[in-house]
Design a protein around this nucleic acid. Structure first.
Lengths: 98, 98
DNA sequence: GTTATAGGCAAGTCTCCACTTGCCTGTCAA
DNA sequence: TTGACAGGCAAGTGGAGACTTGCCTATAAC
């Protein structure tokens, strides 16, 4: 029961959800890119360390994968862990397949 | 942005997720029924007040609807709010429709 | 009526976690 | 080699929330 508490913890924070939105908009950003765009587009004045810790939580939940390249670290979103949510509590489909 | 923080808060707690599991298994339970089954089947020794507060959070998130009948209050699960999650961050479908 | 049952309300405690602060490591350009 | 840039580590702080405690209301059985 409850195999992945990290997943629910990850999406439980509003800032982390905004980070996921940002990675949906542009995948493969670095930490500084995410910081800048969160400040500009979303008005979030979060520090670099805060965002870094958020990304670590997202990575531990499997929602973000990282790729190192020189002194840059690119972050890629992976939404597949979310599948377990709708598999655990199936959504009654009201919109039938056309 | 982030229209429903109550939803993520609701599924962010392990006990509340177990309550949803229990309502999936048997819908329309009362508070005391849920307390009993959580203790028996899931080994959770939570007090009645704790479960009551959890149900209030679930109801505020729209995941649980209640129906009063005499001195009983029946709780019904509604998984449709979960749809917003997969709509917000679409899941790359690997299993094609047969 | 009296008692038991099903549930609600409110204040207090305590733990977890988001965020900060300060310093350190590693990579690239000059 | 020196500096700037990208990122990491660790201890400390503050606030949100899970849970308890105690008492109260309402419905039903006796």
């Amino acid at each position: 029961m409850d195999a992945d508490p990290d997943l629910f913890k990850a999406i439980g924070d509003a800032t982390r959800r905004t980070i996921l939105d940002e990675l949906i908009d542009r995948d493969g950003q670095t930490l500084f890119e995410i910081c800048g765009r969160l400040t500009m587009k979303h008005g979030l004045a979060s520090s670099r360390q805060a965002i870094s810790q958020h990304l670590a939580v997202l990575e531990q939940a499997g929602l973000v994968h990282t790729r190192r390249q020189g002194r840059y670290k690119f972050h890629h979103i992976d939404t597949s862990p979310l599948r377990s949510i709708v598999e655990r509590w199936p959504i009654d489909r009201e919109a039938p397949n056309p």
